[in-house]
Amino acid sequence: MQSTSNSVSARRRFLQKLGLLGAASALSSYTLIEVSASTAQGASAVNRWGLLIDTAKCSAGCDACVTGCNEEHGIDATGRDDTRAQWIRKIDLQDNLTGRESSLPMMCQHCASAPCVDVCPTGASFKRDDGVVLVNKHTCIGCRYCVMACPYKARSFIHETISNQKSIAPRGKGTVESCTLCVHRIDANTGQQPACAEACSKDAHDAILFGDLNNPDSEISRSLKQHKAIEVRSDLGLNTGVRYTGL
């Protein structure tokens, strides 16, 4: 009898503690929200960031965007071009029928239905609410499945130890990375263009236009309405955030 009442009271104490714990966690998640809400707004589904690339303005010999990107993110040459990171690359094309030549930068296309996000086993490859596709390097295990899945060859695996990183671009051996659409600039919310677009404008090409695809009044949306822009590999139906005109 004694032992029964003992166990009942023990159970009661346990339940009391459980209740306390529940209340505490409810309270703490409330403060959590409050702390977060008190600062910036962060990525929101109201926006969808994207690029419009006018290949007519892009010239074949120029790689200002590539240099600009590399400088911004501290991507140094390693002497081994096959293994170093390639966030953005320049491609020169020729039409098989007409012989017309064009040139363009190719980078992460920030797909709405990104294959890299689908295949990532840990969810490290993810899409922010504002459409930017990123790698969360804290949970990336370096399996490189996303590199296999990307139709645009836009992802790079870091093959060597990296030092002298920029504080805005943490990068390290054994993980995968790609164009972030200069997400640190987007979050700073100062209206700054991504590094590639900035570098392109500096060279007076203005071939890369950055903006909000969700905002019908943004320059990029108006441009998209006027010109016939294409998605690269539109057959895959990925709904890319980077579009090209003049191809």
Partner: peptide, 25 residues
């Protein structure tokens, strides 16, 4: 052969169920 085999624990605690790799785990 993973880039970060030291993070194997991440692979078995974080799952993305759209990934065939996750199913394979």
């Amino acid at each position: 052969d993973l880039g970060r085999p030291d993070r194997l624990i991440v692979a078995v605690t974080h799952f993305n169920f759209r990934s065939v790799f996750s199913w394979n785990v």
